[in-house]
Amino acid sequence: MSDRVIHVDGLTKRFGSFTAVDHISFDVKRGEIFGFLGANGAGKTTAMRMLCGLLDPTEGNADVAGFNVLTQAEEVKKHIGYMSQKFSMYEDLTVKENFEFYGGVYRLSQKTIKERLGEMLARLGLDHIEKTLVHDIPLGWKQKLSFSLALLHRPGIIFLDEPTGGVDPITRRQFWEMIYEAAADGVTIFVTTHYMDEAEYCDRVSIMVDGRISALDSPENLRKEFKAQTMDEVFRQLARGAKNAAG
């Protein structure tokens, strides 16, 4: 079972009388690009935050990278990367200083940080902004840098929470190329999105409606099953009966 890097079993989160995540269960395999889809308010982010050890589950259990999120949350944190919806680099620090800080937090040596930063910037063609304040960098570049930063400590799994929100289609395309590269290196990608075209890029997708997983399969099989041309149609069919969804 070493192939199974995320194992979720009946994971539930209630806020008062509202059930945000309702007994979800699934597995994610090593090196997989796992799309976690759902409308706003369907419970994607809540589920993801529980898997990252940011939020305590009300019920159920989950193992991430071989560690239990309830009892070994801090161990989980050593082995995952995370890129949140909110932009997570320090605006008043330079790119290099951000990498030095986060690298230090993951206990990497300054030499390793320097090497990896140089490598990443070269690959992105952004060598010239090493000493630029993050505040002065365009959003698309920031997004790519955030992703590189989340990969700095070479985690086995990376969680991306709507990573392409607010960026132009070209940057989105480039961003997904970065995701493929990381996956090719053996990193498991767990990504939430509400862009249905992005769902097509995933190996498997799960679609959440009202806190439950309504469908889980490869995009191809889902299209067949729902007799749809695109993932967008699949999603529309599933979301029709939703109660909590905002849009």
């Binding site: 944190k77 995370y82 986060y102 937090v105 206990r107």
Partner: peptide, 13 residues
């Protein structure tokens, strides 16, 4: 800024 979440998900104690 949202940076605290990035730290909460890191091994920083």
């Amino acid at each position: 800024m949202g940076t605290i979440e990035q730290l909460n998900v890191s091994p920083l104690t």
